[in-house]
Each structure stands twice: as structure tokens, then as C-alpha cells.
Amino acid sequence: MCIVREKRDLVFCIETLPSSVKDRTLSKFFAKNEEDCEKTPYYGAMPLVLSHISALEYWLSVRRGSRSFVRVSRARSLLSSVPSLSSEKVLGPWWFARPLHAIVAGQELRRPSSEFVCHVWSGPLPKGSVLDTQNGFCVCSPELCFLQMANSLSMVELIMLGFELCGTYDVSDGDVRECQPLTSVAKLSAFAEKMHGVNGRKNALAALKQVVGGSASPRETALCMCLCLPYRLGGYGFEKPELNHRIDIPSTLKSHVRQSYFVGDLCWPERRLDVEYDGSLHLDADRRASDEARRTVLETMGFTVVAVTRKQFNSVAATHAVAETLALHLGRRLRFRDPSFSQVRLRLRTKLFEGSRYGLPPMGNPLK
């Protein structure tokens, strides 16, 4: 690899490298006047910038394990070439569905192809919106990807995606595994706010008003959406809870449970209300005893604990009964009109439980 210290050295480096190397990353140099000394990659053959559903597929497949990215500060320069099979060969991940979606600078760079779908991106590309994966290709950031997907997903799907990107669960192999959030509601909102004139901005901002960060599972996401989305989307319109909220236990009660804090699944701390979702099909004696001790301590602390089982959540009538209980504790009256609300509620539940993945290839349904 040729290390470029000065921009004027770049041409010389390119000419001195073997032709086989020119199609790879030639060098990286430290951009001047950058407070964080951000690395700026230079390429012989411009790499693909994966976008839209291909970028989403990438992000949802790399949530576990370590990853290393370089922020591309001059991202627009990467959009000036036509994606080709030669550039596809350097793609590290082999699991992407075809065709690959990528962004280009203008209509003249779009070509009919079974391998690529090119999207013209004329909007701004703020620093950090394109990342070099260091595997021969670049990818739009989670924030930019969310904005792009706002053009193709329904409002309910877009809200679901927001929950997942800001959540702590990975379902890439069909099972639910813990992971770190890819982004946050605040980051998504701040990014969308500054992208004036970009298609999808309005939908993205509307969806983000309904998203809550910190969900630990698809079922938790679904329960929160069923309870808190507005009536017009099929929810009960409750104020948004804090998901997986830490509840510290007073020292006088720690001996009862042998732990220093609880984590409330859906918690309204100011209302002293905790909704606990139990997705287990069967509870053994030890688990039942632990849950009862937890409930006793929380109630001693002044919390009302509402348990929701998998069987209850699978039932429309039982979920409605839970909503009526929450309405009492949250000081709300359920004001919806039937049959229109029942119809849109059914559509919401169908979408939440069908296990579709935003148009990605099908996999096991973690909601079942």
C-alpha cells in the first residue's frame, strides 16, 4: 500500500503500483484541519456506495462482533463512476441479495443491469453519512439508510425499523440475540432535520416521533407499538414509555431479591407503572418465585406491575384488556371509533406479527 502524505503524491503513487493493486484502496492520508484527524480514503477504482435496502441488509447483518469503519469526508467523489462487475468483485460480504442498490451522482451513470440498481443522489452527504467498510466497498450510514428507506416502507414498517435500529436485539439468524444499538432516535432525528429537500425526510421525521429507543426484542417493539401508536395507525395512543428502564432498589429491600436494580420492560417512571412482557411458553417454579419476589419489591416501592404474557399478547381481546388496565393507571380514556379502529388495529397486528423484514430475504420469524 502506498501511504499518501500529500495530495500531490497521489498521482505518483498510482503510477508506481501494479495494475492489480490499482483497483483496491491505494492509500489513506490524514486530512488537514480536521480536529479528529479523520482518515480520508483514496481509491484507484471508485468503490460502490451501497444504499437503500442493500445498506439496510448490511447493517442488520453486522450487528454482532467487531466492526471498523472510516468516515468518508469527500463522499460525493465516490458517486462519479458507473457501478460495474469489476467493482463488485471486491465486495467482501457475499451474502447480499442481488441486485445491489447503490447511489450515483447523476442520471447519466445509471445503466440497466441485473446486478445493480442505481439511485441518483443529488442531496447533501454530510460528514459521516458514508462509511468505508475497509472491505472494498462503502455503505450509507444507518441514519442515511433510514432516510432512504422512508421512500419505500409504509409508516408502520418505518417505525418498526426505527425501533430495531435503536434497539439492542439482532435477529439476523432468526433468533433474538443481544447487541448494541446501531444509532439512536436523537441521531436519526438530527440527521433527518438537516436534510432539507431530500425525499423521505417528512416520512422519516413523522415515524421518528413514534420510535422509542432501547427495545430488547421484536416482541417488545410490537407491544410498545400496539400500546402507543396513535389510533389512526392501530395503537391505543398511550404516552411513550421508557424501554428497559433501570429501577434502583433501596438498600432496605435488596436482601429480598439479591440484586441492586431491576430493568422495567415498558416503564412509566413518573407514573410508577411497569409493564413486564413474559415471552416464555412455560415458567418453572424458580422463575415463578423470582417473578413474584420482583413484583413484591416493586409494589413495596410504589410501582404498579402489569404482566403481559405471550398468550395474552397473541389475543386481540386480552391485549385490549391490558390497554384498559393501563388507561386507568395512566389517567387516560380510550376514545376510538369502531369499526374503523378495530380494522386498522387488525392491520397493525398483522404487520407486526407476519415477520416480514422490510423487503429483505425471508428468514425465521422471531415474533412467533
Rank of each mutant, 00 (worst) to 15 (best):
C2V: 15
E6Y: 15
D9P: 03
L10H: 03
C13N: 01
S20I: 04
T25P: 01
A31V: 09
N33A: 12
N33K: 06
C37W: 09
E38H: 03
T40S: 14
M46D: 09
M46K: 14
P47Q: 07
L48K: 01
S51M: 05
R64K: 12
G65S: 04
F69C: 05
R74C: 12
R76Q: 09
S80E: 15
V82K: 12
S86E: 14
G92V: 08
W95A: 09
F96W: 12
A97N: 07
A97D: 14
L100C: 05
A102D: 02
A105E: 13
A105Y: 01
L109S: 03
E115F: 12
V117M: 11
V120L: 05
S122E: 15
G123D: 14
P124Q: 14
K127D: 04
K127C: 10
G128M: 05
V130T: 01
V130Y: 04
Q134V: 03
Q134P: 00
N135V: 03
F137L: 11
C138R: 06
C138N: 11
V139E: 02
V139D: 06
Q148L: 10
Q148P: 09
A150E: 03
N151M: 14
E157F: 02
G162N: 03
G167M: 06
G174M: 09
E178Y: 12
Q180Y: 12
L182V: 10
T183L: 11
T183P: 09
S184F: 09
A190R: 08
E193N: 08
H196P: 00
G197Q: 04
L208M: 07
K209G: 11
V211H: 01
G213I: 04
S215G: 10
S215Y: 01
M225D: 07
L227M: 14
Y231C: 07
L233N: 02
Y236E: 08
E242N: 10
I247K: 05
D248M: 13
I249A: 06
P250F: 11
S251Q: 13
L253P: 01
H256W: 02
V263I: 15
G264Y: 07
D265S: 10
C267H: 04
E270R: 04
L273W: 01
L281M: 13
H282T: 10
S290Q: 13
E292L: 15
A293M: 11
R294I: 00
R294F: 07
T296H: 08
M301L: 08
V305W: 08
R310A: 14
R310G: 15
Q312I: 04
Q312H: 01
F313C: 03
N314V: 01
E324W: 05
A327G: 06
L330A: 02
G331M: 07
L334G: 04
R335C: 11
F336E: 00
S340R: 12
S340G: 00
S342W: 00
Q343W: 11
Q343A: 15
Q343M: 14
R345K: 13
L346C: 12
R347C: 06
T350I: 01
T350Y: 11
E354W: 09
E354Y: 02
G355L: 07
Y358C: 02
P361W: 13
P362W: 06
M363T: 10
P366L: 11
P366M: 09
K368S: 14
